[in-house]
Design a protein around this nucleic acid. Structure first.
Length: 423
DNA sequence: TCTGGGGTCCTAGGACCC
DNA sequence: TCTGGGGTCCTAGGACCC
């Protein structure tokens, strides 16, 4: 009779844990990781959470605490996190035939029909111990018949120390016991808006939601919430998907350190985003059919000095050529530019993505019009992989906008020069 | 209530066609 | 020009996720 068994591993405090892997001297020390430009806190170690450092708090607001408690502060280092994430995902394949990476620090895996596993909790502990030993990252593990229940179980694994970080939620009785004590905030797919609406309908726990009128949920909130409720009852609605489709859009944007009304500064920042986006496009063998440029002032709508604009252009042929994308972006920017406003955010979106370059032996690949363009872009990508050495004039020379990363850790695992040394 | 920089999907409504 | 019914495509906005 055995139904589906879907596992979920979720790394604990992932970015903070990554930083600790290479700094054993920081064991037990509260630690935070900052967003781009060292703006606000995006990851906290267990010790930092215990001190009450909130998620997302701007770093200047916790200067006192940093000083007082000796909190270790790190700029984000996505090269490092991405690499450790890859290692964890590879490792997980030793334990499960089908793995779906869901985010940088989470993966679902399917154990349905794997006969040898009689004790799921024990199996979960082995996975956990193995990842901790070989990569150094602590994870939580849960098993359930649906993804939504596995998420709920994983929450419990983190919340209740007694579980030892592993929860087997395949038993319906355990499901409803946990659901009764789980607020809607712990339910995957229920955000603040839905929570407030549901509260007015006297739906306050995962259990309430599971037992509510699903037909009514669909009418009032759409099919996704209906599916979430169904999954809480053990009915699978979100299937495993081992090979998720490639991205449908790429966005690169940033808040400027200093708001500015200087066209050239905005232009340079924009060009930089375009170049980053184009690189990421080429990495996946994609090309873009449309580009959108947007920017806005810092004050929000309502105030008189607010201005926000965006404009898009479609390409006749999809392209991945940084030069073409830069030209288009700058021309769009000119069209919507207005002087005398203080701009604080600018970005680019590449969409209508075309994957044909990602498919080997594609019959129509020749559409990628200019073979020289591909060669040139590949060359630039190869050179810049090591360190950004070639850049486009539009990106600017002095590059004042370059992100602040005052507290960045070395790229321990992805650059030879920065390998950790053993004395 | 939003901090920040990415993303996804769904739904409603308008334009347009037969 | 309107009436009816049926359909597609596109966009904007709203919800969610990490």
């Amino acid at each position: 009779m055995s139904g589906r068994i879907i596992g979920l591993i979720d790394c604990n405090n992932f970015f903070a844990s990554c930083e600790k892997v290479f700094r054993p001297d920081l064991a037990g020390v509260p630690l935070v990781v900052l967003s781009n430009n060292d703006g606000c806190v995006i990851s906290r170690s267990a010790e930092a959470k215990k001190l009450g450092i909130p998620m997302g708090v701007p770093v200047f607001k916790i200067r006192n605490e940093i000083e007082r408690y000796g909190i270790a502060v790190f700029s984000c280092n996505f090269a490092l996190y991405g690499d450790l994430s890859n290692r964890i995902m590879m490792h997980l394949h030793d334990f499960a035939p089908c793995v779906e990476q869901y985010s940088i620090d989470e993966a679902f895996f399917d154990l349905t029909g794997v006969k040898e596993i009689s004790d799921l909790t024990g199996y979960g502990r082995r996975i956990k111990a193995s990842i901790l030993q070989s990569i150094g990252i602590p994870v939580s593990v849960a098993f359930a018949p649906t993804k939504t229940l596995a998420k709920l179980g994983n929450y419990a694994a983190k919340k209740y120390p007694k579980t030892g970080g592993v929860v087997d939620l395949t038993d319906p009785a355990r499901q409803s016991r946990l659901a009764r004590i789980s607020p809607l905030d712990d339910v995957w797919g229920v955000g603040r808006q839905y929570r407030e609406h549901l509260d007015r309908l006297n739906i306050r726990t995962a259990y309430d939601l599971a037992r509510s009128d699903h037909e009514q949920l669909r009418r009032r909130f759409g099919v996704n919430l209906e599916r979430t409720a169904a999954e809480l009852t053990g009915e699978l609605c979100f299937e495993m998907n081992e090979n998720p489709p490639l991205r449908r859009q790429i966005m690169h944007s940033s808040t400027l350190g200093q708001p500015t009304s200087v066209f050239n500064s905005i232009k340079e920042s924009l060009c930089n985003h375009v170049v980053r986006a184009a690189e990421s496009l080429r990495k996946d063998g994609q090309s873009a059919g449309m580009i959108t440029v947007f920017f806005r002032t810092s004050s929000f709508s309502g105030s008189s000095d607010y201005y926000a604009a965006s404009l898009a252009k479609k390409f006749v042929y999809p392209t991945a050529d940084s030069r073409i994308l830069i030209n288009a972006a700058v021309s769009l920017l000119h069209q919507i530019w207005r002087d005398h406003y203080l701009y604080s955010k600018v970005g680019v979106i590449l969409s209508d993505l075309d994957d044909s370059g990602a498919v080997q032996l594609d019959l129509f690949k020749s559409f990628d019009e200019d073979p020289k363009s591909q060669k040139l872009m590949n060359l630039i990508d190869r050179i810049n992989r090591k360190d950004e050495q070639i850049f486009f004039l539009g990106q600017g020379i002095d590059r004042k906008w370059k992100a602040r990363k005052q507290y960045k850790s070395p790229n321990y695992t992805t650059r030879w020069e920065e390998l950790p040394r053993v004395k």
